[in-house]
Computed example of a mutant assay.
Amino acid sequence: MKHNYLLIFLVLFLVNVQAQDTVKVATNLTPEQIAEQDYNSGLAALKKNECAAAVELFNKSLTAKPNFDKALANRAIAYIHLKKHTEALADINSAILLNAQNPEFYFNKSLIFYDLNQKDSQTVALDNCLRINPAHVEGCYYKGISLYDSKDYDKSLEFFTKAITANPNYVYAYNDRASTKRAKNDYAGAIADYEKAISLDNSLVFIHNNLGSAYRLNKNYAKAVEAYTKALQANPNYLVALNNRGSANFENNNLKAAQTDFEDVLKKDPKNAFAYNNLSSIAIKNKDYKKAKDMASQSIANDPNNGPAYYNRGIARQMLREEADCCSDWKKAYELGVSNAKNFINASCLD
């Protein structure tokens, strides 16, 4: 999941400031009004990701109104973005002491632990949020993410569905529910959810890439290539999609197109270990074992923990009669999680 693409939601609480008389303009504001003005200015700064400025404005608001729970909660969000987690946690705990029944405060607290990768504490905060409001959209969404990370895919689906029920236009929930279905090998369900997400927002290139991967796993290579190409049309430098399109072409035995894609990756990123190893796979298929060995070695040079590259180099070395070296490569591949390497070790390596 991408997990590289999960959002930090800004939980913003707007305060309605009374409209001033157009003739009798108030010149002496009460501390409450000053607090509300600075608070709303802080929200505006936070929306623009001007987090340091937002903190200063929330400080001023809290000086005028020290028990302003929503200013504390949103200053916590600003602190999260500034990676000041100790300050964020202090603020959100103070807000909860002032109002223990506001689900947004517990959700904000969960974001602190999410950013710190403290999963148990995040779960407690999310559960408190959902205890107060079981239909809290972002709470359900992040609960789904947490369960996905724990590989509890059935429960994860349940919470992503709750988020979608609460907000039927929630693009990220559709994307992540699709990824959960993909993890359960429900490729048709994943494709339907990815396509729904794209219908809601066609601009998110990573969802086109995810759709391509679902089609690829479903062995519909033409549709996979089409989806990857749409991602690349939106962002020609999206190398994940370019590498994936090459893999789809490779699996569809379109080796010439695959080689072009992998070589194009290397033109943009000369140290891309995945592309080198994929070129090694093409060379093995073409029985060019010297090139396969060289490409795998380039991959390993750029990523010494690339198990599939050791696996490929082992195959190439075996075909080049480098018996001792191929066994060393397969053993390394197996150590790095390539389970198929065990078959070669058992068949070809005496020790």
Rank of each mutant, 00 (worst) to 15 (best):
K2Q: 05
H3P: 01
H3E: 03
N4W: 01
L6N: 00
F9Q: 13
L12Y: 01
V17H: 10
V17E: 12
Q18M: 07
Q18R: 10
V25C: 00
E32F: 07
I34W: 05
Q37G: 06
D38K: 11
N40Q: 06
G42T: 05
G42A: 01
E50S: 14
A52L: 14
A53E: 15
L57A: 07
F58V: 08
S61I: 07
L62M: 08
P66H: 09
N67P: 07
N67L: 13
N67F: 13
F68C: 00
D69W: 09
N74D: 12
A76R: 00
I80A: 08
L82N: 04
K84Q: 12
D91W: 13
S94H: 14
I96H: 07
L97Q: 15
N102F: 03
Y106D: 08
F107D: 09
K109G: 02
S110K: 07
L111P: 13
F113T: 03
Y114S: 14
L116V: 10
L116R: 11
K119A: 11
S121D: 11
Q122T: 10
L126N: 02
I132M: 08
V137D: 12
G139I: 01
G144H: 01
I145Q: 14
D152E: 15
Y153Q: 04
K155L: 15
L157M: 09
L157I: 10
F159R: 10
A163V: 13
T165F: 03
N169A: 05
Y172D: 14
A173Q: 13
K181E: 10
A183G: 01
K184F: 04
N185H: 04
A192N: 07
A192L: 05
Y194T: 04
S199A: 15
S203L: 12
F206D: 01
N209F: 02
L211W: 06
L217Y: 11
L217H: 09
K219M: 01
V225M: 15
E226K: 08
A227I: 00
T229G: 06
K230V: 10
Q233R: 07
Y238H: 08
Y238K: 05
Y238P: 08
N244I: 04
G246N: 13
S247E: 14
S247Y: 15
N254K: 15
L255N: 03
A257S: 12
E263V: 03
D264F: 06
K267L: 12
F274V: 07
Y276E: 03
L279M: 03
S281P: 07
Y289T: 04
K291P: 08
S299D: 04
I300W: 07
I300P: 00
D303P: 02
P304I: 13
P308V: 08
N312G: 10
I315P: 03
A316V: 05
E322R: 04
E323A: 11
A324F: 12
D325P: 04
C327F: 09
W330N: 09
K331F: 05
A333D: 00
E335G: 02
E335S: 08
G337I: 05
V338Y: 00
V338I: 09
N340Q: 13
N343D: 15
F344T: 04
